[in-house]
Design a protein around this nucleic acid. Structure first.
Lengths: 377, 377
DNA sequence: TTGTAAGCGTTATCAG
DNA sequence: CTGATAACGCTTACAA
């Protein structure tokens, strides 16, 4: 044993001393085993094991110029989630039981009912993230997860830790990203094409909307729809224009006034829905920008005593797990989220081929028919 | 602009030159803004912004001695998952579409049906992980996700990247962990008490099993149960002995022979179940070690034409989302998985108080009654 | 085959 | 308040 503190992390120097070799040999024992005689290599490895030596990734990254890690950054995503924990302060509402007390922590202090709500998890981002993790695992790359306000510093901090960064973009994001783009490869999820130099992984929103309208028109004879969503979001913009095109194609009337609502927007929805009811202007179908909008609509409709799909048809977009669990189960457009996450990881790892020009990967979505459109169970 | 390549990551030196100050001032501008005059600070910050400077986490970690990151390591977990992708080679069976081709990637190349199976995600580990991420986010700590064979090198690699490590232990893990324990705080999920110096976050398995037996005995008059699981897993051992104790307490007969099955064990289960049927020895209830075992049992029983709960009662353990979706929906014991992940993060971040002795946090689980026990919808 | 020594980009400790 | 300068732990020519 070396004389260093028992608690200090052993370094190459400690191992070198323990094994009676130079620090270079220690390094070689791990990185270039072939450049060492079997005897010394074994001696070094043995010493390392004895000392509990774990090479410092920081030092290695510094020397080698790369961290080996791929990053996934989420901008205050919870804010856009229909999430009970979507507060200005994350987790602000949750219990924080004492962990150093003896005895069992009672169920009431776990907030499990809140945390286990399937409308809060897994969402779109969670499945994309899972795909990213899965692929990184297959590639042998650690994943760095971070989140933040989308400010310069939060992005910079993450950018400094990884060899490549995948991001769910938000409007305020662009400038910060533009700054680091030359320095590190960046993949944007679900961002419409643009002339930045970022890679993109997205879904064909127009095709998804077309599938919805086609089904509604052909299978259910729907002639009259309205769109529910918050038009600012870029994905939403594409979906709305896709809906417009499809409505024209299938001879369906699209209400010019969008029902504007956030994903948690019961408060905003109820009045607008009431106005439609009062004016007897409720369309046959409410086509929602996301599943979460659809859930909010379902709740608001139920509160008004309006039946789905009998009185009005509702559809979603994303294909989250929660769409199976709503009542009625939601007809929606499924994005291949895991595949999207996997694609991003492959691009960043260089496993997708050389990036002489930015990747723009577009996946086909798929209509998932359940009961909220009027189809039978 | 400095004369460095456009693509090289700018460093303190570049910023210092651009702002006409020393590198120390650059560092201070970010870490100790108070120690700099407003004028220089602004000048430095401005230069940094202009250059797209992102401090290197590697260098900082090296200098500062800590990475700021908290790690979550999973040992070849997929192997223990009832997961279609649980192969020796992760993702081996999945399509890998070309990403550099033009045009939309067709749905068939996404393998989305496999990947979106709720029996594969989210599982116990995924929810614990989510809790870990949530808390790390609240604490402003990036998360490092890694996975590997549980070998020395895989653990060492992770250990070298983080300030603290949470782990889902596997049997082969112990020696590797013991090695790094003195060097870095380690939290074990769901590991029974032992005299290593690791922290622990777990659930009261015995209490969970007691709740199951109590319900079965009191509400359904069950007098006769068998246990399904793979006794090697440490969690399973605790659950089995909890079941034993509870069976005694409530005067329920417990079959001495455990139905031994892996989580994907249809192949092993069917013969054992058939033997029970043939001998007319099927107990009134099959108490399973995990939800995943229960799903395998449900499938095997259905294949044999045996009805649940009419012919035999089935219960699970964990409370995963998939338990809501099985048919019949599964009566199970829910672990507060998010809370467990959060607790681990707090411990590692030092937010749970000083760790003069290892934390051993035990959560209360909760019986979730659904239909597989015989309760009505 | 092994050792020496020069970085890598920060932070921190001193002087000035 | 600011600037030199020495760590930090590792990789990698280059020497021996």
């Amino acid at each position: 044993m070396s004389e260093a503190d028992a608690t200090r992390r052993p370094t190459v120097y400690d191992v070198a001393q323990e094994a009676n070799v130079s620090i270079a040999s220690v390094s070689f024992a791990f990185r270039r085993p072939d450049k060492l005689s079997d005897a010394t290599r074994e001696r070094v490895l043995e010493a390392a094991r004895r000392l509990g030596y774990a090479p410092s990734a920081a030092a290695r990254g510094l020397a080698h110029g790369r961290t080996g890690t791929l990053g996934l950054h989420a901008f205050d995503l919870l804010l856009e989630r229909a999430d009970p924990i979507a507060q200005a302060n994350p987790l602000s509402g949750l219990a924080t039981p004492r962990l150093d007390a003896d005895g069992v922590i009672p169920w009431t202090q776990t907030d499990d009912d809140v945390l286990s709500d399937p409308r809060a998890f897994p969402l779109y981002v969670d499945e994309v993230q899972r795909g990213f993790e899965l692929e990184c695992w297959a590639l042998g790359r650690p994943v760095m997860l971070s989140s933040g306000a989308g400010t310069d510093v939060s992005v910079a901090d993450t950018a400094g830790r990884v060899d490549g960064l995948a991001i769910f973009p938000s409007p305020q994001t662009a400038p910060a990203l533009a700054r680091y783009a030359p320095t590190i490869p960046i993949v944007l999820f679900s961002a419409p094409p643009a002339d930045d130099h970022h890679h993109r992984v997205r879904v064909d929103n127009a095709a998804g909307m077309r599938a919805v309208v086609e089904h509604l028109a052909r299978a259910h004879g729907v002639r009259d729809v309205a769109f529910v969503g918050r038009p600012e979001a870029s994905d939403t913009v594409e979906r709305l224009s896709g809906l417009r095109a499809a409505a024209t194609e299938f001879g369906v009337a699209l209400r010019p006034d969008v029902v504007d609502a956030t994903v948690r927007g019961e408060d905003e929805l109820v009045p607008q829905l009431r106005a439609l009811i009062a004016g007897a202007r409720m369309p046959r179908a409410l086509v929602c920008a996301t599943d979460q909008h659809a859930f909010a609509v379902l709740d608001a409709l139920a509160a008004e005593g309006i039946r789905v799909p009998d009185d009005v048809v509702v559809t979603g977009f994303d294909g989250t797990l929660a769409a199976r669990l709503s009542s009625p189960p939601l007809t929606t457009v499924r994005q291949p989220m895991e595949a999207m996450g996997r694609a991003a990881a492959r691009i960043l790892a260089g496993a997708a081929g050389p990036a002489d020009r930015p990747f723009d990967v577009v996946f086909e979505p798929r209509l998932t028919v359940r009961q909220s459109c009027g189809c039978r169970a």
